[in-house]
Design a protein around this nucleic acid. Structure first.
Lengths: 115, 115
DNA sequence: ACTATATTTCGTTAAATAACGAAATGAGAT
DNA sequence: ATCTCATTTCGTTATTTAACGAAATATAGT
């Protein structure tokens, strides 16, 4: 069904989700880290991650209290793999993305994930 | 701006627009031909074509009473070109698409575009 | 100028989406 | 078992989107 196929494109049709994908391509992050980087409510970020997971772009791994999200590099679904490969090309040189990646380097998990 | 970039993905996030793109990859069509193939209101189809045009996927050429739409094969925007190249791969073997293409072969413009 | 036909624009409605805060859940630590 | 904290789910609100029909626009032929 075409409605199933467009789930991939819908998942890519939101700027915050593109930012998340690019962040996770840089390195795996837990929900609170992503939340801190995007400056959105935790529930909103959780929803975005769910959508990306349903589309097959990312996978989750629990680690203690935290849920870490990883780019799905399993080549089972070749459509996902190819899109992830093209991602860099489609949104290269974006100011927001570049700034996000810089912030990840300075990110202090301790600081980001404690109340 | 990321909002500009996601226009491409939003344009792909609708089953009828994917059907249109695949049809136009087979051959250029006028609005009433597309309308007849999709079984939607003319105004709806016109809107979809406008969105695809704004995203850069297709171009329009007027020919008498009719407005024909073509796949944009001009490689100015490499993002558009690459996505169009990948399209086949992403939505290959779809029942709806296959059926659409079969219908195009039998399509009688005279019949489709007269009241 | 008038008519016929193709397309676009406009106004409306129903459904989908993104955001938030509050409440519920789950999993370690005490 | 209880407490704490990270995450998800729920309910709500504002915005966006897809669809339609009717009215407006454009172009060809009479």
């Amino acid at each position: 069904m075409l409605n199933e196929k467009i789930k991939l494109f819908k998942a890519l049709s939101d700027p915050n989700r593109l930012r998340i994908l690019k962040m996770l391509q840089y390195k795996p992050l837990c929900v609170c880290e992503v939340t801190s980087l995007l400056n959105l409510a935790t529930s909103t970020v959780s929803k975005h991650l769910h959508i990306l997971k349903e589309a097959g772009f990312i996978i989750e791994k629990k680690d203690g209290k935290w849920v870490y999200y990883f780019i799905n590099n399993n080549p089972d679904d070749k459509r996902v793999t190819r899109i992830l490969m093209e991602l860099d090309f489609w949104i290269s040189d974006n100011q927001q993305i570049v700034s996000d990646l810089r912030k990840i380097e300075d990110l202090d998990k301790q600081l980001a994930c404690t109340p």
